[in-house]
Every structure is written in C-alpha cells, then in structure tokens.
C-alpha cells in the first residue's frame, strides 16, 4: 500500500475533472483552458464537420468557439457541464456560418450527386455500422444533414432548429422525416 503523499505530485491539471478546469479557466487560468482545448477540441471539430458536411471551415469554427468560450466562461455556473456547453457554442458558430453562406439552392431539398464513398460496394465493406451511417449522412442534402446532426447529436428540439436555421418548424419536420427515411432505407442492417 502506498501512502497518499507518494502520489501527491502526480495530480496534475491534465487529470483534473471538468468542473475544476472550467472554474480555473473562468478565473483566468490559461493552462486549465489549454487542457480543455486539448480534451474537447477534436470532438468539437468533428461535430462542426458533421454539421457543415466538410472539414474546410472546422478549424476556424472551433477556434472562434473557444475564443468565445473563454470570454463567456465566468457566466457558466456549473463547470461540470462544460463539455455540452462547448458543443452548444460550436453548433451555434457552425449555424452562423451556414446562415452566412446560404444560397437559395441549399434550402432546396435536392439530392446531391452521390459521392464515391457512399457507393453500395463500399457500404458493403464498411467495417462498422458507424462507418455506414457516416457514408449515408454524406449523401444527404445539406439542409437534411444539418437538421439530423443538430437533432440527433446536438439534442436540439424541432423548434430550436427552426429558430436557429430560420426555417418554419414544419419545414424542419419535413427535412428530418426525409433524412430519417433515407438513413433507414440505406442503413443495411438497421433492423
């Protein structure tokens, strides 16, 4: 049995829980903020990429999200929820970009040209169902994909999505229904 004091030096910021890190960062500790950036940056980047459908702008979006988070951290009362709080900020930033870039075409619900990665052959060799899901998501029209990711991953309600994307709730409902149908039809072993 080891005396606790022998391990004392090993309790570093890298091991710290989210509440400790968020609290320190809110108080201006850049080192604690850096640990949060390393801990959740990759997931935030992946989330932005899923919403945007491409990784082109993900790094910029995540950077903007963290800079905004640093400023707003003192307003976060419960530091233990910092992960979902950061994910919310990154989805807001992604939505801002979608709105800024949106042309009328994007809201049209036409199918994009099927990307190579979603070919039946490749789906058949997809090693996991997640890869299959990923491939099908890539074939969805942008608006359908955005609604799906925000609803299923970001836990946004239909009304939240409608407000954020500036669309009628009925349109969001329709987009989600079509996304769902496509995913179910394309996911080979969904049952």
């Amino acid at each position: 049995m080891k005396a606790p004091s022998e391990r004392r030096g090993s309790y570093s910021l890298d091991d710290a829980d989210d509440r400790t890190l968020a609290g320190r960062a809110a108080d201006g500790d850049v080192r604690a903020f850096e640990v949060l950036v390393r801990r959740y940056g990759p997931m935030m980047r992946a989330y932005a990429t899923r919403i945007l459908g491409s990784s082109t702008d993900s790094d910029d979006i995540v950077q903007e999200a963290f800079i905004a988070a640093w400023k707003r951290l003192p307003t976060l009362d419960d530091g233990s929820v910092v992960k979902s709080w950061l994910m919310r900020i990154v989805s807001h930033k992604s939505i801002d970009l979608i709105r800024a870039n949106r042309t009328h075409d994007d809201i049209d619900d036409h199918e994009p040209e099927a990307p190579d990665e979603a070919s039946p052959e490749q789906r058949a060799v997809a090693k996991s169902r997640e890869e299959a899901l990923s491939a099908v998501l890539a074939t969805l029209p942008a608006a359908q994909r955005q609604c799906w990711v925000l609803h299923e991953i970001g836990r946004y309600s239909y009304d939240d999505i409608a407000r954020e994307l500036d669309l009628p709730t009925s349109t969001v409902r329709g987009l989600l229904a079509r996304a769902r149908k496509k995913l179910i039809l394309e996911m080979e072993d969904w049952r």
């Binding site: 992946a46 997640e130 899901l133 799906w148 991953i153 969904w190």
Partner: peptide, 17 residues
Amino acid sequence: GLARLRAMSETLVETDA
C-alpha cells in the same frame, strides 16, 4: 432501430474525433 440509429449518431463525433 430508431434508438440504435440515435445511439450511433451520438457516438459518431466521438468516433470521428
């Protein structure tokens, strides 16, 4: 099936990351 699809979506970004 829907619940599986949802669970898969939720872990998707973690797998991506």
